[in-house]
């Protein structure tokens, strides 16, 4: 019997021209991919691909049948979408946001997530990157926006979004609108606890130390505490939030943007409710970076 999976394999192989890459796109390993292809070829009674050294190419028969496969797969997906839209409850999309994600960016991703599946309900939680990775892994979250770099533990991840950051300093600390990190000496930079995302935090601190040999860091529980310490003349906050402000605090662009906020969307390959996760993530990534 011809199945949706056969069509996915056919199209992925035609697009990727590589067994390993096609298997990844479909979300299976190589042996079932090869087996699925053999079964499909038996079903349609034609050889669809030439398997060469390291390359896979469509045969004339494969090229002729490919448009039909695409149309069939699109119809099946439309059927799924229609079925979901008829469900009065709608599927639930549980989104996790790292605390570093600017509120406007988090809102944009949540809005875009809901728009992907008509009738879906979106719930949002905020938690540290390491906690979010764990929650996506265990199925408690559908997807999450986390700091990069991070240990993925087998999760799927979208492209890296780079959000520019600003320095917030006590009023009168520096005058220029655009400052080099070196000018921000004498006060510690407020950072969140290292255990929340060791690799990303180390990269931040290592980069900071490269550009700014003195001044150090001070660990704060959240941006609220960092902002308060800045207003009190005790710290500098580096933030990607374009709206974060307080009396007694000045905002400065960082020359050459040395400390961008690196964010990635992560999800579980086996638990995603999205029929075309890569397309959805591309949309959501755009929302994340565009806000």
């Amino acid at each position: 019997m011809l199945t949706e999976r056969h069509l996915q394999i056919f199209i992925a192989l035609a697009e990727e021209q590589h067994f390993g890459d096609a298997a990844r796109v479909v979300g299976i390993t190589q042996p079932p991919l090869s087996q699925g292809l053999r079964r499909l070829e038996a079903l349609v009674g034609a050889k669809l691909f030439e398997r060469g050294a390291g390359r896979v190419e469509l045969t004339p028969a494969g090229a002729a049948l490919l448009p039909y496969a695409r149309r069939a797969l699109t119809s099946i997906e439309e059927l799924h979408q229609a079925a979901v839209a008829r469900d009065p409850e709608g599927p639930e999309i549980r989104l996790g946001l790292a605390p570093e994600v600017p509120p406007s960016a988090g809102a944009a991703v949540a809005a875009a997530s809901g728009a992907v599946i008509p009738g879906s309900r979106v719930t949002v939680v905020t938690a540290s990157t390491s906690s979010l990775i764990n929650q996506v892994n265990t199925g408690r979250l559908t997807l999450a926006a986390v700091l990069h770099p991070v240990v993925l533990d087998g999760l799927e991840a979208g492209p890296v979004s780079l959000l520019p950051t600003w320095a917030l300093a006590p009023a009168g600390f520096v005058d220029d609108e655009v400052v080099g990190l070196r000018q921000l000496k004498g006060l510690p930079v407020a950072i969140r606890p290292r255990t929340e995302a060791p690799a990303a935090r180390d990269l931040f601190v290592d980069t900071l130390a490269l550009h700014r040999p003195t001044g150090g860091t001070v660990v704060v529980t959240d941006e609220r505490a960092g902002l308060a310490m800045t207003a009190a003349g005790q710290a500098i906050v580096v933030t990607a939030d374009p709206a974060l402000t307080a009396p007694g605090v000045t905002r400065h662009r960082l020359a050459d943007d040395p400390l961008p906020l690196r964010l990635r969307l992560v999800w579980s390959r086996t638990r995603t409710p999205f029929l075309r996760p890569n397309d959805v993530i591309a949309q959501l990534t755009e929302a994340l970076g565009a806000s």
Partner: peptide, 15 residues
């Protein structure tokens, strides 16, 4: 480069 995604498959054991 920490600013871009690793190309698919570079750390896969299969090949």
């Amino acid at each position: 480069d920490n600013d871009q995604t690793d190309p698919a498959g570079v750390y896969e054991a299969v090949n």
